[in-house]
Simulated assay, not measured.
Amino acid sequence: MSNVEKISVALTPEMAAFVRDVVKSGEYASSSEVIHEALQDWKQKRLLQLQNIDEVRRLWQEGIDSGAGQYTDIEAIKQEARKRLGQVSQKDA
């Protein structure tokens, strides 16, 4: 195993029991292995969240950079939505 640093982690009784149970069942060789895999999953999830945040920021900026919107206020947006909804309803009939 490469260099490792030992740290102490406090778990709720329920989480500690869960870790002990999966080790006892043979699914994992040790509690360290359980925590290691959980941290790897968390790291991947966090990376994905950060990528999503970056994408939203990029799209937000793209919207700002594209200039003023077509509609002047919320009422204009509602009016356009009603118009489009009417067109969809008429096509379905």
Rank of each mutant, 00 (worst) to 15 (best):
A17Q: 11
K83D: 06
R82L: 07
A29T: 07
E33S: 07
L48H: 14
M15C: 08
S89I: 14
I7C: 05
V88S: 05
K6P: 01
K91S: 14
E80T: 01
E75A: 12
G69K: 10
K83P: 00
F18M: 12
T72R: 15
K43V: 06
E5M: 06
L11M: 05
S31M: 07
V9G: 01
G67T: 01
E80I: 00
V22C: 08
E27H: 12
S30V: 04
A17F: 04
A16G: 00
I53S: 11
L39D: 04
A76Q: 09
G26L: 03
Q70P: 00
D21E: 14
L85E: 09
H36C: 10
V34F: 02
D54H: 15
R84L: 12
A29Q: 09
K43G: 03
R82D: 02
D65F: 02
S8M: 04
V23A: 02
K91I: 08
K43I: 10
V9S: 04
G69V: 06
G26V: 01
Q70T: 10
S30M: 05
I7V: 10
E14A: 11
D21T: 06
M1L: 05
V19S: 02
P13N: 03
E55N: 15
Y71A: 07
D65V: 00
Q61D: 13
S89T: 12
K78P: 05
V19G: 02
A38T: 05
G26E: 06
S8T: 07
Q40G: 08
M15K: 10
Y28A: 02
S30R: 03
D92N: 06
V4F: 08
E14R: 06
R46C: 13
V56G: 03
D21L: 10
S2P: 07
G63M: 08
E33K: 05
V23Y: 01
S2F: 05
M1Q: 05
Y28L: 01
L48T: 14
E5L: 04
L11D: 00
K6N: 09
S8F: 03
L59V: 06
V34G: 03
L39W: 00
L59K: 10
L85Y: 11
Q87W: 04
A93D: 08
A16T: 00
E27P: 03
E5P: 00
S2T: 12
D21G: 06
K45L: 14
D54P: 10
Q70M: 11
L47Q: 12
D21M: 09
V88M: 08
A68L: 12
F18P: 05
A68M: 12
T12E: 01
K78T: 12
I35M: 09
D41S: 12
Q90L: 09
A81F: 10
E37G: 03
L11E: 01
S8R: 02
Q51I: 06
A76C: 03
K24I: 04
G86L: 08
R46A: 14
K78Q: 15
R84D: 02
D54Q: 15
L59F: 00
V22G: 05
E62Q: 13
A38L: 14
E62Y: 03
Q44D: 15
I7Q: 01
I64W: 07
V34K: 01
T12I: 01
D41F: 09
